[in-house]
Design a protein around this nucleic acid. Structure first.
Length: 794
RNA sequence: GCCUGGAUGGCGGAACUGGUAGACGCGCAAGACUUAAAAUCUUGUUCCUUCGGGAGUCCGGGUUCGAUUCCCGGUCCAGGUACCA
C-alpha cells in the first residue's frame, strides 16, 4: 500500500466539498429540509477541547447520514459569544472583549474546519454582533410590551470589596469571592425578570417532544408543580401568608417560620429582638442555598419576638425565622408542624418547641404519612385528602386562605450588572420611569468607552458615549439602563435566526418559520436540561402567542451527547485536565480521530478519555485501504453468507445511526470487513461498506469512492443500498438448552422444525439426557428459535 | 440536601420487547514471516477448577423456568441546583 497522505487528502476534500454547491444547504428547497442543529459554543480563550470535538463530530455524522438519505440538511454553527469569561479576561488584561472574542472565534473556526464537518460557513452568526443582538433587544421589547419583562427586588451575590454583583461560579466553596477574596453577601437589588412562570402550565405539556425521558423528568421536577393551600396567620397589625401541602395538619401548628430574607421581618420584629434578628440575617446571607436546604447541616433559627394566631383554632404561636425556609419558594413562610414534618420535628426538638400530634398513628413521631385526623375539632375523623378539601374551603369562606397551585419554577432573572452582554433596550426618564427604546433605534449598541474593572457602578455607568447617545435621542435628564442581558436570552431564540441572519428586516421569513421550525434534531449537553432548554421552549411559546409560529415546540427531537471526562472529571482549564484534540488530528488525521472517538462507547454516554486503542482504528483504516486497492473475489460457496452479512450490515448500521449508536456502526463495519477479508466481496459490498463508513470517516470515504471505486460524484450525494430482507433469513437456528435455568447445551435445528420434534430430539441427546435421568420433567418451556428449557424435580 | 443519570473481563465497551453474558476494538500470550526489529498475518484470552464442573454483569434482598434487563433497599461516581453557558 502506498502510504496514506491523510493531510493532503483531508484538505483536498474539505476544499472540494466547500466548492460543491450540490452539497450545500439549499434555502430555496425547505420542504425537504432537515434542520440538524448543535448547541453553539462559547468562544473561550482555550482551544476546542475533546468534548467540543466529540460533540461537533457527532452532529456532523448525523447530518451526513441524513444527507445520504436525500435530505436538504441545514447544519449551521455559530457562537454564543456574550458572557463572563471574556469580561473577566478584560478585567485582568484590559483587552476589550470584542477583540479577544474575535480572536478566539478565528481560532475556533479553524479548528472546526479541521473536523471535516459540513457546517455552513455562510451561516456562522455571532450573538455579540449588533446585527444579532438587535433581535435579542427586539425580543426583550416584545416581552416588555406583553408585560412579561418586569422589574422586582431580588437577592444577588454581593462582593463587598469589589462593590459588584458576582456570579455563583465566582464564589469559592468557602463562600469567598474568587477575585477579591471577600466573604460574599446576599443583597436585595432591583432586577429585570422574564415572567416564565406564566408559562409554567404550558411548559408542563411535553406531548409533542421526542426528547430523552430523563430530560422531560428533570424539566417536570424543575417546574415542580404542587397543589397546596395558602393560609394567613394574623399578627397584631400584619398577616403572614404561608403555603403548605398539608393543611390537614394545621391543628398541629406550633410556630410559624419566615425566611430570613422575608421583607415582613422589617416590620414585625419588636425593638427588643431587632439586633439579634439582623445578626441572624447577616449570618444567613453568607450561606448558599444548597447548604441551607441540606438536611445534614444542623438547623438554625431564631425567635423573632412576634406572635400570630392560627385562624382555625385561635391558638397563638410564636414567629421564628430560620434559614431552612427558602424565600423564593412558595410564599417564603411556612407553618411549623413538628409532629408531621421531618425538618420541623428536628427544629422543634432543638429549640424545645411544643409538639402536638394531629394525625392518628401507632408509630413514632414525626408521622409523615397521610392518615386520619385527631385533635382537630370538627375535622376529626376525616382523612388527609378530605381534610385538605374541607379546611381549604373553610379558610376561603373566612377569607383566610384557599387552595393554590404553586410552582417551584421561579421567574427568569435576566438582568446582569455586567459589561459583556446585550444592552437592555430601556432608558429611564427624568422621574426614573421606565421607557422602552423604540425599535427604530435598534440595535442599541454596547458602548466601548467603559471601565471593565469593578468600581461600584456597573460598567455601562462609566460610558460617556452611552449617556450622550441617550440624551441625543431622548433629551436631557434621561439615563440609560446599565444592566445587560443574561447570555441565556441570546441563546433562547437563535435557532430562528440562523437561516435569515443576513437580513436586517425581519427575524426570519414566514416560510422559514413554518418549514424550518421545529428543529428536526437538536444536540447538546444534558447540563442544559433545565435552563437553556426550558428558556428555548418558553420563548418559542411566547413567540407563538405573538403569532410568529403555529407549532407548539421549537425542537422536535433532542439528543444529549455524553460528557467526555478526563480522569473521571469534567474537563476544565481550572482542573488542568483539558485534552487538546489537535495533537491527535495532526498525528492520525480527522477521520481516524472521529472514528476512534465514536468507537469508544455510546455517543449519548460519553466517557473517560484515553488514547489507548486509537491504534486499532488506525489499523482498521489501513487494512481497509489495502483491501480496496487489491480486493479479493468472493468465494462462490459463501454467496448466501455474504448476502446475509452485507444486508445485516446495512440494516443494523442505518438503525444504529438513527439512534446515535455510532460505536456499534463501527463494530458492524469491522465485522463486515473481517468477513470479506476472509471470504472476499463483490462490488456492491465494497460500495456499501464505504458508504456506511462515510459519515464517520468522510475524507477517507470520499477518497476511496473516487480513487478506488472510480466514482465521479461525491459519496454524500449517493444513497444507501436498499436492505434485502430475504437475505437475512437463515434456514437454521441455534437453540440454547436449559435445565432448571442452567445452560447445558446449544444445538442447531432447521428453522422449519416442529416444536415437538425439537423437544423430543433434545431430551435424547446425551449431554441433556444425563440431567433428566431419573427426574420428573414438571414443565417444558419452548421459545421458537431460541430456547428449550426443562424444569425438573426429584 | 434535592432532582437526574451511571456502574458488565486487565481496559473501552456489546447484548432485540426478560431468553446462549463478554460482539467489536485495545492490551496480553503463543506462533508465522524476518539476520533482527517494526509492520503484517494466524491462534488463544471473564475468573476459579481436582477438567466432572463451579462462580460471575457495584452490594444485599425479591419476582420468574430463566434477570445485565423488572421490583425493593443500599454503596460509590457523574451532571444540574436558577448570575459559567
Amino acid at each position: 500500500m502506498q502510504s496514506y497522505d491523510f493531510q493532503g487528502i483531508e484538505s483536498k476534500w474539505q476544499a472540494a466539498w466547500r466548492s460543491n454547491p450540490k452539497l450545500a444547504f439549499d434555502p430555496q428547497n425547505l420542504d425537504n429540509a432537515f434542520y440538524n442543529l448543535v448547541m453553539f459554543p462559547y468562544p473561550s480563550g482555550s482551544r476546542l477541547h475533546i468534548g467540543h470535538w466529540f460533540n461537533y463530530s457527532g452532529i456532523d455524522i448525523f447530518g451526513r447520514f441524513k444527507k445520504m438519505q436525500g435530505f436538504n440538511v441545514f447544519q449551521p454553527l455559530g457562537y454564543d459569544s456574550f458572557g463572563l469569561p471574556a469580561e473577566n479576561f478584560a478585567i485582568k488584561t484590559n483587552i476589550a472583549p470584542q477583540d479577544s472574542t474575535a480572536k478566539n472565534i478565528k481560532i475556533m473556526n479553524e479548528q472546526i474546519d479541521g473536523i471535516g464537518g459540513m457546517f455552513e460557513d455562510k451561516y456562522r452568526m455571532i450573538t455579540s454582533s449588533p446585527e444579532y443582538y438587535k433581535w435579542t433587544q427586539w425580543l426583550f421589547l416584545k416581552l416588555h410590551k406583553a408585560g412579561l419583562a418586569f422589574q422586582k427586588e431580588a437577592l444577588v451575590n454581593w462582593d463587598p470589596v469589589d462593590q459588584t454583583v458576582i456570579a455563583n461560579e465566582q464564589i469559592l466553596p468557602d463562600g469567598t469571592a474568587e477575585r477579591s477574596g471577600a466573604m460574599v453577601e446576599k443583597k436585595m437589588m432591583k432586577q429585570w425578570f422574564f415572567k416564565i412562570t406564566d408559562y409554567a402550565e404550558d411548559l408542563l405539556d411535553f406531548s409533542e417532544l421526542n426528547w430523552p425521558a430523563k430530560t422531560i423528568t428533570m424539566q417536570k421536577n424543575w417546574i415542580g408543580k404542587s397543589q397546596g393551600t395558602v393560609i394567613n396567620f394574623a399578627g397584631e397589625n400584619f398577616e403572614i401568608e404561608c403555603f403548605t401541602t398539608r393543611i390537614d395538619t394545621v391543628f398541629g401548628v406550633e410556630y410559624v417560620v419566615l425566611a430570613p430574607e422575608h421583607p415582613l421581618l422589617k416590620t414585625i420584629v419588636p425593638e427588643s429582638h431587632m439586633d439579634q434578628v439582623s445578626e441572624y440575617q447577616n449570618q444567613t446571607a453568607l450561606k448558599s442555598e444548597i447548604d441551607r436546604s441540606s438536611t445534614e447541616l444542623e438547623k438554625t433559627g431564631l425567635f423573632t419576638g412576634a406572635y400570630v394566631t392560627n385562624p382555625l383554632n385561635g391558638k397563638k404561636v410564636p414567629v421564628w425565622t430560620a434559614d431552612y425556609v427558602i424565600y423564593t419558594y412558595g410564599t417564603g413562610a411556612v407553618m411549623g408542624v413538628p409532629a408531621h414534618d421531618a425538618r420541623d420535628f428536628i427544629f422543634a426538638n432543638k429549640y424545645k418547641l411544643a409538639i402536638s400530634q394531629v394525625i392518628q398513628s401507632d408509630s413514632d413521631l414525626p408521622v409523615l404519612e397521610h392518615g386520619t385526623l385527631i385533635n382537630s375539632d370538627k375535622y376529626n375523623g376525616l382523612n388527609t385528602s378530605e381534610a385538605i378539601t374541607a379546611i381549604s374551603a373553610d379558610l376561603k369562606a373566612m377569607n383566610k386562605g384557599e387552595l393554590q397551585t404553586t410552582y417551584r419554577l421561579r421567574d427568569w432573572s435576566v438582568g446582569r450588572q455586567r459589561y459583556w452582554g446585550c444592552p437592555i433596550p430601556i432608558v429611564y426618564d427624568p422621574e426614573g420611569q421606565v421607557v422602552p427604546i423604540p425599535e427604530e433605534h435598534l440595535p442599541w449598541e454596547l458602548p466601548t468607552d467603559v471601565d471593565y474593572k469593578p468600581t461600584g457602578v456597573p460598567p455601562l455607568g462609566s460610558s460617556k458615549q452611552l449617556q450622550a447617545n441617550v440624551e441625543k435621542i431622548f433629551g436631557p435628564g434621561y439615563r440609560a439602563e446599565f444592566d445587560t442581558l443574561d447570555a441565556f436570552v441570546c441563546s433562547s431564540f437563535y435557532l430562528n435566526r440562523y437561516a435569515n441572519h443576513a437580513d436586517p428586516s425581519q427575524l426570519a421569513t414566514e416560510e422559514q418559520m413554518q418549514k424550518l421550525i421545529p428543529v428536526d434534531l437538536y444536540m447538546g449537553g444534558a447540563e442544559h436540561a433545565c435552563m437553556h432548554l426550558l428558556y428555548v421552549r418558553f420563548i418559542h411559546k411566547f413567540l407563538r402567542d405573538q403569532g410568529l409560529f403555529t407549532c407548539n415546540e421549537p425542537v422536535k427531537r433532542l439528543i444529549h451527547q455524553g460528557i467526555i471526562t478526563k480522569d473521571g472529571a469534567k474537563m476544565s482549564k481550572s482542573k488542568g485536565n483539558v485534552v487538546n484534540p489537535d495533537d491527535y488530528v495532526n498525528k492520525f488525521g480527522a477521520d481516524v480521530f472521529r472514528m476512534y472517538m465514536m468507537f469508544q462507547g455510546p455517543f449519548t454516554e460519553g466517557g473517560d478519555f484515553s488514547d489507548e486503542g486509537i491504534i486499532g482504528v488506525l489499523r482498521f483504516r489501513d487494512k481497509l485501504l489495502r483491501f480496496y486497492e487489491n480486493p479479493k473475489e468472493l468465494d462462490a460457496t459463501k454467496e448466501s453468507d455474504y448476502k446475509r452479512e452485507l444486508n445485516s450490515l446495512l440494516e443494523k448500521s442505518i438503525k444504529d445511526y438513527e439512534n446515535f449508536q455510532f460505536n456499534t456502526v463501527m463494530a458492524a463495519c469491522m465485522e463486515f470487513y473481517n468477513f470479506i477479508a476472509k471470504h472476499g466481496a463483490e462490488q456492491n459490498g465494497l460500495e456499501s461498506l464505504i458508504q456506511i463508513l462515510a459519515p464517520l470517516a468522510p475524507h477517507l470515504a470520499e477518497h476511496a469512492w473516487h480513487e478506488l471505486l472510480g466514482k465521479t460524484e461525491s459519496i454524500f450525494l449517493s444513497q444507501f443500498q436498499e436492505v434485502d430482507k430475504s437475505a437475512l433469513v437463515s434456514n437454521t437456528c441455534v437453540y440454547a438448552i436449559q435445565v432448571n435455568g442452567k445452560m447445558r447445551a446449544s444445538l442447531e435445528f432447521d428453522t422449519a422444525a416442529e416444536k415437538e420434534s425439537i423437544i423430543a430430539n433434545v431430551s435424547q441427546r446425551p449431554e441433556i439426557a444425563k440431567y433428566l435421568e431419573g427426574k420428573e420433567v414438571v414443565k417444558t418451556i419452548f421459545v421458537p428459535g431460541k430456547i428449550v428449557s426443562f424444569v425438573v424435580k426429584g
